[in-house]
Design a protein around this nucleic acid. Sequence first.
DNA 1: GTTCCTGCAAAAGCTTTGCAGAAGA
DNA 2: TCTTCTGCAAAGCTTTTGCAGGAAC
Lengths: 139, 139
Amino acid sequence: MDNNLKNLTKKLKECNIKPSQQRLQILKFIITNPCHPTIDQIFAALHDELPTLSKTTIYNTLKLFADAGLAQEITIENNEVRYDAKIESHGHFKCKICGKIYDFNISIDDIPTEGLNDFPIETKHVYFKGICKDCLRSK
Amino acid sequence: MDNNLKNLTKKLKECNIKPSQQRLQILKFIITNPCHPTIDQIFAALHDELPTLSKTTIYNTLKLFADAGLAQEITIENNEVRYDAKIESHGHFKCKICGKIYDFNISIDDIPTEGLNDFPIETKHVYFKGICKDCLRSK
DNA sequence: GTTCCTGCAAAAGCTTTGCAGAAGA
DNA sequence: TCTTCTGCAAAGCTTTTGCAGGAAC
């Protein structure tokens, strides 16, 4: 595992981001919790470790990560931002009941497209919605 | 073309939606303008024809259409809702410069997925972002 | 008359901005 | 000391809600 603070510090430095406690903890959290937590969830989860942490800092930090290429904005829902720290091409499945977002394997680059010739594509997102296994079971 | 008011009226009635002037005009507008206009754009465009139209009605109406299956919410950006009146499987390309959203052909059902066994999927969205031809040219 | 629809105004929710104090080099 | 980071408070936007008046049947 490369989620220890030493490696995360290195990761941040490589992107010219100063490794403050707040940034390290936020990065660690989104890497170890790949369900793409909301700002609120990150805030609640880190409150014990960093009692003075503010949501402003979470917003700032995640935007910083996105600019640096460490994370990517997910727009599967339009009333809240979520982030993804995974680099590899994959899709997102959001459960309509519990709201959890799952990653799934998909070769986005293999998707055949028609009508996008000469349109330089910078980012690709695949979002599915439905009901997850856990919620299915408890129904 | 089936965009005349008579056919649209029929379409609404089939979904048990009363064909008011507001609903007819909004439906007509999103069908004839498949660039997925924002609420503001719809509001501005219909203002001449329906001077008293309110944004509340546009929000209500589009949500009504979505519930009835006449339209689908697009969440390519998380600071504004957009809608899609096209039924066939297709993807969306958003230009980062002009903000326009283009449809493109894609067989979403053919996308191979891994890890989603037993997850009933209800909706599938494919969003690409980049720069459109027009904006490329004018650079 | 009854039901449903519309639209103003206010409220709500998420995100951004301004800025002063704190932390770090 | 100087620069950068943090976090409170306020502002900004989009969307939702409450409700009274209006339209349709």
